[in-house]
Amino acid sequence: MAENTAGAHGAEAAQGEGGGLVFHPMDQFIVKPLFGDGAVHMFTVTNVTLWMALAVLCVIGLMVLGTSGRGIVPGRLQSVAELAYGFVYKMVEDVSGKDGVKYFPYIMTLFLFIVFANFLGLLPMAFTTTSHFAVTVVLALAVFLGVTILGFVKHGTRFLELFWVSSAPMVLRPVLAIIEVISYLIRPVSHSVRLAGNLMAGHAVIKVFAGFAAIAAVSPVSVLAITAMYGLEVLVAFIQAYIFTILTCVYLKDALHPHH
């Protein structure tokens, strides 16, 4: 991904600035160093670092500080922490089955990170880490590789029965197997693009409406539209985290029980 896009960007740069908008809706996704101006290297402290660190701090604040009272009757934060725990735990148990509970901490990690990254990205002037394909592809590839390796370790070559639909007529099975393999391989793509695409689209649309607010005639409509989009984005921020998590559970179930 890195190589071919770099080439494309070279072409774009030669072409000059893209678009004549005064207000660039994509500027909010620029990664830049927090201290000084310079090239972004692998270990440079950037706004990515800042917002991911904030997400980690929020996770710690909710899950560790929130539960430090260990009350039998929970306080507010502890209730939320217990709710999140029960929500993800029940999801893993219901979708992946009893033996999927072993992998609950990994799924909880993904869920909490995505939820907090999404919601922190909704703050004004914030940088949305999960709107970058680089981030979501790593998340999705981790799930994809983990689940595939787990399937082969647990079932050996019998894991390939996942693609061999034994309930279909014999004639159709090779065709179905090809379709199943393709849909299996496309999983990480849809898994990652869904999350990043949803967040990027929502944030870009808000910025586009914000650009329209400069025109006096349509600015009230634009402000209303921004408000409505923001409400939708709050919903999307949670739903996308939920969907990412539940799809992870579904893939995990396929790895644990590959038989149709």
Binding site: H9, E12, M91, S190, G197, Y242, I243, I246
Partner: peptide, 27 residues
């Protein structure tokens, strides 16, 4: 849960076309 999975699959294809649009626009 099934509802959300179905919504996710239906939406993924829309997101793909959105991605194609963005690639055409910018890349």
């Amino acid at each position: 849960a099934t509802l959300f999975i179905g919504i996710a699959f239906a939406e993924a294809l829309g997101i793909f076309s959105f991605l194609v649009a963005l690639l055409l626009m910018f890349a």
